[in-house]
Design a protein around this nucleic acid. Structure first.
Length: 280
DNA sequence: GACAATGTTACAGT
DNA sequence: CACTGTAACATTGT
């Protein structure tokens, strides 16, 4: 799932459904997916949810927290008596628990939180609430859209780098939250070739790209994120952004501006889609 | 069988 | 040391 809009959608869901619940037990089915002592969070109450970039933090009332990264295929699914009636997308979720369920949190009032993760890249770890900033992933996060990434900061970051603009905006240490889908679409919206060296962008191009990043992410948030692959929200239902992508995943299809064919190349090992005519 | 998939990081090389 | 590019992690689907 995993870019800022998807993780933010999960955060909103956890805030709505999970906060206030007490953990009764935690079952770790895949040791690699969970680090730390389960005992530290049993019988504690969930009080707050945070998101930093693509990472999540769940705070408990005993100064402990869970730090979570769902990477490519993680899912956090909440079930209780009420939400049980909501029909999950079977093709993306399957049985609960199922073959890819890695951790199960049993909560009070018969509620359950499942952590599913096909590829097992994701992780959950128990930490002290005050040590979030010392975790490798969270410590290194750059400023993020909608928070502390101002246009001025963005211009400085872009003009200071010689690497291609696309991998730059996907570098979480430089800018937090942008991944492959939105990097592709933002560059298309700004009419910038993804191979361009970052420091070759003009001030106007930088500003336009900044606005484009915000625009595509804002649009995705409205659609509840992108369910191109395995992403679902905490109720197990899909987002809809994948039906509205500008260029991502559209190799061979016509450009929505000029009807030229969208092409796919690889930059930094990642699929890159763009219109060779609009994004010279 | 080969290749690609929303991400991050360890490692090698400059 | 800083920066850059590539491979690896594990599994599934085409």
């Amino acid at each position: 799932m995993p870019e800022l809009p998807e993780v933010e959608t999960i955060k909103l869901g956890l805030q709505k459904y999970l906060v206030g619940h007490r953990i009764e037990s935690t079952i770790v089915l895949n040791p690699k997916s969970f680090e730390g002592s389960v005992k530290k969070i049993v019988n504690t109450k969930i009080i707050k949810i945070h998101r930093f970039g693509k990472g999540l933090i769940i705070d408990f009332d005993n100064k402990k927290s869970l730090a979570i990264h769902i990477k490519m295929t993680g899912q956090l699914i909440f079930r209780d008596e009420k939400t049980k009636k909501i029909v999950v997308d079977k093709s993306k979720v399957g049985e609960l628990p199922g073959k890819h369920t890695r951790v199960i949190f049993h909560l009070d009032k018969k509620a359950i939180l499942y952590f599913n993760d096909i590829r097992k890249f994701g992780w959950i770890r128990v930490i002290n609430s005050n040590e979030v900033d010392s975790l490798p992933f969270f410590k290194n996060l750059g400023p993020e859209p909608f928070k502390d990434l101002t246009e001025e900061k963005f211009v400085l970051i872009v003009s200071a780098s010689k690497i291609a603009i696309k991998p730059l905006i996907m570098d979480q240490k430089k800018i937090a939250g942008v991944g492959n889908i939105y990097a592709n679409d933002a560059l298309f919206l700004a009419k910038i070739n993804p191979k361009r060296k970052a420091n070759s962008l003009s001030l106007n191009e930088c500003r336009l790209l900044y606005k484009s990043i915000l625009e595509v992410m804002e649009k995705s948030l409205r659609f509840g994120g992108s369910s191109e692959n395995t992403y679902v929200n905490v109720l197990g239902t899909t987002g809809e952004y994948q039906r509205h992508t500008l260029v991502y995943g559209k190799k061979g299809e016509k450009c929505i501006n000029c009807s030229e064919e969208i092409i796919r190349i690889v930059i930094g090992g990642r699929s890159t889609f763009f219109c060779p005519k609009c994004q010279q």
